[in-house]
Design a protein around this nucleic acid. Structure first.
Length: 204
DNA sequence: CGGCCGATCCACT
DNA sequence: GTGGATCGGCCGA
């Protein structure tokens, strides 16, 4: 089933990051459908989190997307090269987000292979937030799209994305928890255990 | 308007 | 292990 509003609007972004492990991120870009199993996430806890773009309630045209209601895609350009995909959580006005750092390719592998420019490696492909967007065809212009299946806008006729629960259960003892990557500038918040990953055993 | 820098990746040594 | 690519966002003047 497709995750609905109530999954995203909860106020515990760290819990949601953990629960997104084992869910399936699906994109349909200009009719090309691809998907991947979510295997790594990071939580960004809004205005009090020094690693977040919305730290100290910084509102700009870019971060404004994070203030939307949970269930919105927040995609931004990093290092001028990579589009990084995040899921906005919590209620409107509270800028929480979960960065999807890795997927395991599922459907549409031929399409993903073409986007990748080389054959997919079952062990490595899709690891790294830039890779996630590359394989799934996500671009920073997709920022602001809804992950809920309602009110398709004009832009959404070109690009749709959502997250599915296919019943896969990821147990706590399969999960590695640690500090987030690349946020050294965040002082003590760089040490928060907001990164979650696991290595899928059964994949189909 | 100029300048700095980033929630990264890859090629190369 | 390291440095270059590459460009939008953000800030200060």
């Amino acid at each position: 089933m497709i995750l609905t509003r109530s999954f995203y609007t909860r106020n515990d972004v760290v819990l949601i990051a953990r629960e997104l492990l084992g869910k399936v991120l699906v994109t349909n870009i200009k009719g090309m459908k691809t998907s991947g199993l979510i295997t790594e996430t990071e939580a960004y806890a809004g205005t009090v989190d020094k690693a977040s773009h919305a730290y100290n309630d910084r509102r700009t045209s870019r971060t404004e997307i994070m203030y939307r209601e949970g269930g919105t895609a927040y995609v931004y350009l990093c290092y001028g090269v990579h589009s990084l995909f995040n899921v906005v959580t919590s209620v409107e006005g509270n800028p929480h987000a979960v960065l999807i750092r890795a997927i395991h390719p599922l459907e549409g592998t031929e399409i993903m292979e073409k986007r990748n420019g080389k054959p997919l490696d079952a062990k490595r492909s899709g690891i790294g937030p830039g890779k996630v967007s590359k394989l799934l065809g996500i671009h920073f212009s997709h920022s602001g799209l809804s992950l809920l299946d309602e009110k398709p806008s004009r832009q959404e006729t070109d690009a749709q994305m959502w997250i599915e629960d296919r019943g896969l259960v990821v147990k706590d003892n399969q999960i590695i928890i640690g500090p987030r990557i690349g946020v050294d500038y965040a002082g003590e918040d760089a040490l928060l255990p907001y990164r979650f990953r696991y290595f899928p055993t059964e994949v189909r």
